[in-house]
Amino acid sequence: MEPTPSDKTAESEIAFQARIDAGETIEPRDWMPERYRKQLVRMMSQHAHSEVVGMLPEGNWITRAPSLRRKIGLLAKVQDEAGHGLYLYGAAETLGVSRDEMIDQLLAGVSKYSSIFNYPTLTWADVGAIGWLVDGAAIVNQTMLAKTSYGPYARAMLRICAEENFHKRQGFEILATLAQGTPEQRAMAQDAVNRWWWPTLMMFGPPDEASPHSAELMGWKVKPKSNDELRQRFVDLAVPQAKAMGLTLPDPELRWDEEKRQWRFGTIDWQEFWRVVRGDGQMNRERLRERRRAHDEGRWVREAAEAHEAKRRARAAAKIGR
């Protein structure tokens, strides 16, 4: 009797899981469950969108950076983010989705990006806070993803991790300099940290019980560690760094747990998290509006480049008499 398609699929899925369990890397043309492919496209494209949208809150301060060194450093950082977006879109494309499709989904509000970028950057100190906290959190997440089971994603992560470290150090240096500066600079730094701390903790996502995708992704070694584990690791890194800068964190419940050897922290306001994820953060509309405008206004440029090349090829073909 012929095996039914679902029998064949079940067999392939067992073989696939065995590869995963053996620690093998999955490459673009390997067989994979449709759900695995879908989840990866979702993760990689959202990650790419986050890099690109993430250019906006910091880009907001490039023109006003208060020293040449800071101007150059910030521009280099934001440029890196564009590069990271390119790596990630490239990695996602290996699974059969085009850059155009992904951009369309972003601009239509269908595909998401990290909610942290829906918060406004209000002062120069916010640039430091983003570098130290947001990039710091991203590094914790990305270091874990460098071991993800899907090859192109893991390789993109390795590149990104190598470049990301300077972002975090730059952010730390900006804040530390402010903290040691005039009283106004110090107040500016503390205010920025107060506003960015909790949203950064939310970046790691809801607690694992409330997270629909977590279990599946961990089973496929797409996401080797849980949201809560990563969040804890980040807090444990950040608390001594804040102390080193001479700034406080806006959490009265922050306490060292001697037994578990970790920092216990207060309750996250998950209502705020969901509100912002669902589109009601302060900058949600504006971020997408800016991206839409850039995309629309750029269309004639993209078309011109394509047209120019088409003409060149036609001329070359005509010469050969084809």
Binding site: V78, A82, L86, E297, G298, V301
Partner: peptide, 8 residues
């Protein structure tokens, strides 16, 4: 920055 016609 953030407004170029294409990411590249």
């Amino acid at each position: 920055c953030g407004h170029a016609p294409v990411l590249e």
